[in-house]
Design a protein around this nucleic acid. Structure first.
Length: 757
DNA sequence: TATTTTGGTCTTTTT
DNA sequence: GACCAAAATA
């Protein structure tokens, strides 16, 4: 095999780094570091673990370390591997390194685990059964594929949902387990005890399709390294220095991947914070941090504890909150500034009546800050779950305040975009059966399920791809003349477009395909309200394609990045999940929805043990420490979930704030007289709460209400509701009442929210 | 075949 | 209430 890595014309000399070894003046980006940071940069040899609290300059250390290694000529950029968790982090890191060392940064191996895995598999994939143009499946494709396998095996999909099995397979992959290493004990009675076999068949289907799912990107790498020592040796040789960001979020597979790669030079530097481990549900093992000392001999452990980001108040609150966790390495964050730094504003805590009210309040605060010349871009709303975003969006739209949602409904996951991509996939890889299936009757060409099934059966028996099978079937009388004709047209069209791809830029090709296939037409004729939006998205899609020179490059981007990063640089408030916020910082942070069952989330509470709860608390810690100056936390007494109003209690995390760091503010105008439970004002209620542990807000009034309510309400009764006013009960079902309100119309409400009128 | 109706499940968090 | 899948209907 030709060695692609022998191009290094001038291997750098192995210099033992030492600040005193040369008279060269030290650049400012080095001298401005604090002693611990500097150590983390300069100890280049051997394993290094940097335990880095929130806001302690972890990213800066990583970037400086990269620049230092390059600047000292300890290695060429192409001999350095730097791994991040998100594409955003990777992009940012590359930009900032480039700022220090210039265009050399281009040749760094820098990216997410998955992106780097793809890079390796594109080169050596044949050794594990993947051709270099293999497809990367998204969640949707994975589900459909596994579903096909399960259906073929006659597994009852009602009893054993696809998602559950898929989740199990993914977790196995996270642990680095190929199907032959999963024991039946691990599988249990999952999928009627057939889980392991189904896993195997799923992998077989993937191989036939020349496709890999997300977990495979790492798992195949591991297999490759284990079975082909010469390939592993190449990479081990090449990567003189390895840097890992967010190490606390690595899973077992990623850990093994790293361990294999660093075995020659042993220069592995991992940066992480166990208090910010929030991805255990995705297979992340905080244990990787704890194992570091055992698995890598004589590691240097460096703690960064000086926080440069937040005010002392925020820091104190965050530290106090996280100290409720028992399972941690333990570290204290100190403010980095002078001893007499101003403590900063207290954390504002506010209880409101319901979700919309909360949104109203948050946006009011944002507008107030804006009128004091604070940039909207310096403010963020961090939510626990995606559905919370809607209320804020609505409010921003009505008030006209610019906002930006990160990680919302993803562009590339929209139906029309996935269809368009499927066309490109068919053109690029004729064997991509999943894409073909998606496209075959979109727009409607009279090729129904029955015909597709025939193609399927034939393809399977003859060992052909769907497209090839369809082509051959068109030569026979198996299919109806009508079907045969349109199927034939589709296949010739696809072939024609394929022949254009050498000469035509992807954007133009896509435009032509969407046009000639009738796909655009389909939406233009569609009269549903969302059709114009879809056409708009397709336009944007074609526009976005212009950045790409080749289809495969674009397809990789789509499957790995999944987000459209045309981030307008307008001044806008950011809305995102707490998970997405990790690694970012803002002057002002809003933390809405701090209610029991939402945050901490019900699922975390249900799952026994304290582990899940501790992860929720870490999430709270991440949220708090995103703020530089000011934090607003809030909770609503009522929240609508599935069209049901539900009473909720303030999150236990609110109680865990140290009292001298917070300021409770009550809802005067709106709430004052309207809500009995609220009128007393917060402060008094909260004083007693700490000891009694039963928040007064819902305390006596509501609890009593709940108890007495069973049976008190009957059809025909006239009642009063805080939000909807007066009404008459139409139906009673358990604690749910169907009420015809005089003003608000017919609603379903919980009995605890009404009182006899 | 295509469209409508019904019935069941939902919401954590993401590469 | 929204979204999906399967059944019923045109």
């Amino acid at each position: 095999m030709s060695d692609p890595f022998t191009l290094d014309d001038a291997p750098p000399p192995a210099v033992i780094p030492s600040p005193a070894s040369g008279p060269a003046p030290e650049p400012p980006w080095l001298t401005s570091l604090n002693p611990e940071q500097r150590q983390a940069v300069e100890v280049t040899e051997g394993p290094v673990l940097v335990l880095s609290g929130a806001g302690t300059g972890k990213t800066r250390v990583l970037i400086t370390r990269l620049a230092y290694i390059i600047g000292r000529r300890l290695a060429q950029p192409r001999q350095i591997l730097a791994v991040t968790f998100t594409n955003r982090a990777a992009r940012e890191m590359r930009e900032r390194v480039a700022g220090l060392v210039g265009p050399m940064a281009e040749s760094l191996w820098l990216g997410t685990f998955h992106a780097l895995g793809v890079k390796i598999l594109r080169k050596h994939g044949e050794l594990v059964g993947l051709k270099s143009n293999f497809t990367i499946l998204d969640t949707d494709d994975q589900t459909r594929l596994l579903k096909q396998v399960m259906e073929a095996e006659g597994i009852d999909h009602k009893k054993w949902p696809v998602q559950v099995l898929l989740g199990a397979i993914q977790r196995w992959k996270d642990k680095g387990l190929t199907h032959d290493r999963v024991t039946s004990a691990m599988a249990g009675d999952l999928a009627a005890g057939r889980a392991v076999d189904l896993y195997r068949q799923y992998q077989e289907r993937l191989t036939t399709l020349n496709a890999a799912d997300f977990g495979d990107l790492l798992l195949h790498c591991l297999t490759l390294f284990q079975d082909h020592a010469e390939v592993l040796a190449e990479y081990q040789d090449r990567f003189k220095y390895i840097l890992v960001d967010e190490y606390q979020d690595t899973n077992v597979a990623q850990y093994l991947w790293l361990r294999l790669l660093c075995q020659k030079h042993h220069n592995l530097c991992c940066v992480g914070d166990d208090d910010q481990s929030i991805y255990s549900w995705r297979g992340a093992e905080v244990g990787n941090i704890l194992r570091f000392e055992k698995d890598f001999k004589d590691p240097k452990i460096i703690r960064l504890e000086r926080n440069y980001r937040s005010t002392p108040t925020i820091l104190a609150a965050a530290s106090h909150l996280i100290s409720h966790n028992t399972d941690r390495l333990g570290k204290t964050l100190k403010t980095a500034g002078d001893a007499n730094t101003e403590p900063g504003d207290p954390i504002i805590i506010r209880g409101v009546w319901d979700g919309p009210e909360e949104a109203r309040w948050v946006v009011e605060e944002i507008e107030a800050a804006q009128s004091k010349d604070q940039k909207l871009a310096s403010m963020a709303i961090l939510v626990r779950a995606g559905f919370q975003m809607l209320e804020f969006e609505e409010r921003f739209i009505t008030t006209g305040v610019p906002y930006r949602v990160i990680g919302g409904p993803r562009f590339y996951e929209r139906m029309e975009i996935r269809d368009a991509i499927a066309y490109l996939r068919c053109i690029h890889a004729p064997t991509d059966d999943l894409a073909f299936e998606r496209v075959v009757n979109k727009p409607k060409r009279g090729i129904g399920e029955a015909s597709v099934q025939k193609v399927h059966v034939f393809a399977h028996s003859a060992g052909l791809s769907l497209m090839e099978a369809a082509f051959q079937l068109c030569e026979t009388d198996e299919l109806r003349a009508q079907t045969r004709k349109s199927l034939g047209t589709l296949i010739t069209d696809l072939a024609r477009w394929r022949s254009l791809r050498e000469t035509m830029p992807p954007a133009d090709l896509a435009a032509q395909v969407l046009d000639e296939s009738g796909y655009t037409d389909m939406w233009q004729r569609d009269t549903s309200p969302e059709a114009p939006g879809r056409l708009e998205n397709l336009k944007e899609f074609v526009g976005g394609l212009e950045e790409w020179d080749t289809i495969p490059a674009f397809l990789d981007h789509v499957s790995l990045v999944m987000e459209n990063d045309n981030q307008a640089n307008d001044d806008a408030v950011t809305i995102m999940t707490l998970h997405a916020a990790k690694g970012l910082e803002f002057d002002t942070v809003f933390l809405p929805g701090w209610e029991e069952e939402l945050f901490p989330h019900r699922r975390a509470l249900d799952e026994g043990g304290g582990a899940a709860l501790e992860e929720e608390r870490r999430l709270a810690y991440v949220g708090l420490t995103r703020a530089r100056k000011k934090v607003f936390a809030s909770f609503a007494a009522n929240r609508r979930i599935y069209n049901q109003w539900q009473a909720s209690l303030p999150s236990r995390f609110i109680v865990e704030f140290p009292e001298d760091c917070v300021e409770h503010i009550s809802d005067s105008g709106l709430m004052g007289s309207a809500a009995p439970g609220f009128s007393g004002g917060w402060n008094s209620g909260w004083q007693t709460q700490k000891t009694s542990r039963a928040p007064d807000i819902a305390g006596d009034t509501w609890q009593a209400h709940k108890r007495e309510s069973a049976g008190t309400y009957q059809v025909g009764m006239r009642i009063f509701h805080q939000k909807f006013g007066y009404g008459v009960i139409r139906a009673v079902e358990d604690t749910r009442l169907d009420i015809a309100f005089e003003k608000a119309g017919q609603k379903k409400v919980l009995d605890s929210f009404v009182e006899p009128a």
